[in-house]
Amino acid sequence: MEDFDKIEELIEIAEKNNISLAQVVINREIDLTEKSEEEVRDKMRYSLQVMRESIEKGLNEDVKSMSGLTGGDAKKVEKARKEGKSLTGDLFSRILANTLAVSELNAAMGKIVACPTAGSCGILPGSLITIAAENDFSDEEIIDALFVASGIGVVIAKQASVSGAAGGCQAECGSASSMTAAAITYLMGGSNEEVAAAAAIALKNLLGLVCDPVAGLVEVPCIKRNAAGSSNAVTAAEMALAGVKSVIPADEVIVAMKKVGDALPDSLKETSLAGLAATPTACKIKEDLLQNSL
């Protein structure tokens, strides 16, 4: 099996065999699972379908989380966009609305694709599918881009972590944003180096982000951090596609993320003991929720 532990190796395999980055990830999956290329692509096609449904549901249904803390923000952004009140342009508003839609649906016990986690599930579909629709890409092209995102995620999971409990939010929303930046850059025809630069820039920008969920729930600040993750992914992709390079190579950024995660105190890694979770308002919310539940 031609496996890769680093983004550098992923690119090397592609260039040595004169195949795309997506094909390297697909070939690895075929070897790993002993399935056909068609079966592997079909599985990703199903993920794409669920992602699209999650955007639709999040935008159109009455979405309210179990705790009652969140829901309905995607609709607000979408409404403002439709009324022509977008500050930064129609496409960007749609990316934000679609990202919020998926994240809010997740908090409301809707069906989503974890990518890489449930807490960060809005970033990849919210950005990639929206940009693909704007540019009329085919499903097969989007599926290729999803495999590229997945390949970046595999490297991050191998070298660092994609779990908030292990590495903080930089490992969840940071990884999702990095995967998404790479996928967008790939979809838009960026070179292998540009894909790696996009992944590096996106992850660098969210380095150090802590995981401090209010009352321990995947809601505050997670949902809005998904929106930030999308905006960061688009920022990184836009720069990479323009030829902006990352001074620190992607693989070194990933190792830095791991080390920052290790250095973060446990109180800022999903335990809800510090950060936003320890604010007076958060403590009151937690108390109220506990009284209502047990």
Binding site: V25, L32, S65, I112, V113, A118, G119, V154, A157
Partner: peptide, 24 residues
């Protein structure tokens, strides 16, 4: 973690909000 599948990263398809607290 060397046998990590592409679908461990994009996936699972699940009901939210938490892989540990809901899917688990």
């Amino acid at each position: 973690m060397n046998n990590l599948s592409a679908f461990d990263i994009i996936g699972p398809v699940m009901i939210g909000p938490s892989s540990s607290h809901t899917a688990g």
